[in-house]
Structures are given as structure tokens and as C-alpha cells.
Amino acid sequence: MTTESTKPRVYFNPLRPVTVISAPSPEPLTFHQKLPGYAVTPLIHAPRLAAALGVRDAWVKDEANRLGLPAYKILGASWAVYRELATLFGPFTPWTTLDELAAQLQAHLPLTLVTATDGNHGRAVARTARWLGLGAHILVPEDMVPARIRAIEDEEGQVDVVHGSYDDAVRAAARLADDQHLVISDTAWDGYTRVPGWVVEGYGTIFQEIDGQLAALGARQPDVVAAQMGVGSLAMSVVQHFRAPGRRSHVVGVEPIRAACVLNSLNAGALTEVPGPHLSIMAGLNCGNTSPLAWPYLKGGLSASVAISDARAEEAVRLLAQDGVTSGESGAAGAGGLLELLAGEFASQGRGALGVTSESSLLVISTEGVTDPEAYARILHGQG
């Protein structure tokens, strides 16, 4: 039986979503192109997903292999680390390789990068630290699955398990900041907004790539873009890009029912915490607090917000697999949100509010590949 704690919920913005005043900077893309193994990730035409959503085109930006890691987070982490190091120790002389950049940091060692994570962001910070010859200290919540902890340790990061939720790990990481420990968080708090802002900027590479890919295919800009929401940083980047001047895409935010901090905040009209534990399989989205940096963009720029069940996310994992996209539980959440909003119990209201028809074009970002192989195998075989 469906209970209040597991019932999908939706919020429709009663006002016309705002247009962001200025478009994001192109500088992160130039930076990312200098990193080892940079390549444009695939933009996949997904006919099975389109059919399930009742639209003409569904596009999936597949982030299952981004700079050698199974998630998009390295884009934000690497750019934020670079900008923070440049602010503290720069300006750097021109460099071509990371070895040349690392050599300019030698006089400032030892330095350790510190962050809290549900998995992918921490691994990305640890990878960036390893590239630059820095230490990495990663704090994780107590419900982190072993496979994700091992992945961080494989990047030579020191992992400490914090008793409590992701939000408890964020607070613990913040307390470690000093002259030799730089906190690289993807969420903001009072007095700490510079680094999270650079994380959001780094994600902009995804959308610059998408613009180029759609143009090369002769395809139009999407009518609706779905964005997963944990603390809201990715969704903020989506709003900055697709609500920039001259753009008219609707942006839909998606989060787990048991960690719907953005949706609860939208309903309340102010930032609202969702106390833990946050038990969704969408581990990368298990956050109880919205980033105050992202909040104004989400409040003004989202056309709708939807909180989905684990079952809906699992359905999306299987559906994306039919279109050739290997997506983890958090990675598939955007597609799951559109299934809930456009083909589920909210379909009539959702399609009307977003102007979705059989001729519409939709975009989802599959933000991760498989980060928990056992869970993926279970879901793919319909045993969720």
C-alpha cells in the first residue's frame, strides 16, 4: 500500500520561470580539454524513452565515462580545485599538462583536499588530488555502500565514515578546514559559497557540449530538461544554461521522496531541511538540505519539481538500458522524474503545465554509470 512517505509528490511553479541574466562562462570547457582523457561524452537518441514519455524525441547525455570516472562530478570538482588553488597560490604561469601545474604547487605542500560525499563527488576530488600530488580526505555517511568507499580508496583518498547522514558528513568536513586542508564542497553554507559556485560552473561543460551535439545533428533545443537534485548544484547549472537569454526550455527538478529538500522548500517558500536518515537507493541524491547558493535559481528557474520513489528510479534504469544507456540509480533519476510527471498519475497536469505534446523534445542527463554493480544487476533483472 502506498503511504505518505512513499507517495510521489509534485510542485508546479505558479509563476513564469525567470530568465537568468547572464550565461555561464566558457572557461571551464577550455580547462577540461587540457585534462587527461578528455572527450565529449555521448548524446544518445533514446526512442524507447521517447515512446514511454509520449514525445517525438528523447535525448540522453551519457556521463557513464567522464575523464575516466563513472560520473559527471569530476567536471565540477576539478574546476573548483583549480580555481581555489589559483585564488590562494596563483596566478599560475601558463601550463599545458597537469604535471606542469603540479610543479607550481610544490612550494605550498603539504596540502590536503577535504570533502563530504555520497560517492561520486568525493571520488572526483580524490582523483583531482592524485593528479596534482595532493592529499585527499573524504568523509562519507554511514550508509555508504562498500563499493563506493573502495572506489575512493582506489584513488588514494583517505576515507572516514561519519556516524550519521550526508549532511552530518558535510558539517564534519567543514570543521577540518585550515591552511593545509582545503574544503572542496559542492554545497554551500553561510560564509562558504566561492568553491560551490565554481563546482556549478564546472558542470557547464556538459551543456556546452550538448549545444554543439544538437547543432551537429540539426536538432532543436529541448522543450524540457530534467535535472537530478541532491543539494541542487547540477540543477542550478541546468537553470543557468537553459534559462539564459534567448532560451525557453522548461527545467524539471527530480529528487527522492525521502530526501525531497528542494520540493519541501519550494512548497514552504523558504529553505527547509528534511531530517535523516535518507534511505533512497538514489544515493547521490540523499541530501537533507538544499544549497543556499542554488536555492534562488531553483526557486525562480524550475518549472516543476517532482519527488520519485525508488521503484520509479529502477524502472528508469531498465528503460535506459533498452536504449543502450548504462545508468546507475541516481543517474537514471532524471528519466524517472519525467516518467512520473509525464506518464504517471500527474501526466495530465504535468503535460499541460510544461506544454508537452507528441511533437516535444526532452533531455535527461544520465549523471552516472554503474557505481554499485550488485545493485545494478539486481535492478536490471527486475528484482528491485
Rank of each mutant, 00 (worst) to 15 (best):
P373Y: 01
L342N: 04
P8A: 10
P17E: 11
Q180V: 13
Q383S: 09
A116E: 00
L35T: 14
V306C: 05
H381K: 15
I152M: 06
L298C: 10
V238E: 02
P26V: 12
Y72M: 14
W295L: 06
V231S: 05
D190L: 14
G369H: 12
S327G: 11
L279T: 14
G230Y: 05
T326D: 09
T117I: 01
T117D: 00
F346M: 14
E340T: 14
S237K: 06
V200M: 13
I257F: 01
A235D: 03
L29A: 03
S185R: 01
Q349L: 13
D99F: 06
L134Y: 03
T2I: 15
E368S: 07
A307L: 05
V145W: 09
M236L: 14
V183Q: 01
D178C: 07
T272M: 07
T357H: 11
L134C: 02
I21G: 13
L35D: 11
F89A: 12
A259C: 09
Y82F: 12
V364T: 15
D154L: 14
H45P: 05
A86R: 14
I365T: 15
L49T: 01
Y72V: 13
S185C: 04
L88M: 14
P146M: 04
Y82P: 01
W131F: 13
E84W: 02
E142I: 03
G212S: 12
I257M: 11
A259H: 01
E156A: 15
E345S: 14
T30W: 08
T115Y: 00
P94D: 08
E255K: 04
R150D: 14
A124Y: 03
A332F: 06
E374H: 05
L43T: 08
T97N: 07
V231F: 04
A316S: 08
A151C: 07
R130T: 12
A172P: 03
Y11A: 12
I308Q: 04
E315I: 04
I152Y: 00
G288N: 09
Q33D: 04
Q221I: 11
H32A: 03
N289S: 13
A147N: 10
G301D: 02
D179L: 12
R248Y: 09
L263W: 03
A86D: 15
A216F: 11
P146V: 02
V356T: 06
V199S: 06
P94M: 08
D211P: 09
S185A: 15
A335Q: 03
A107P: 02
Y11G: 04
L111V: 05
K299E: 13
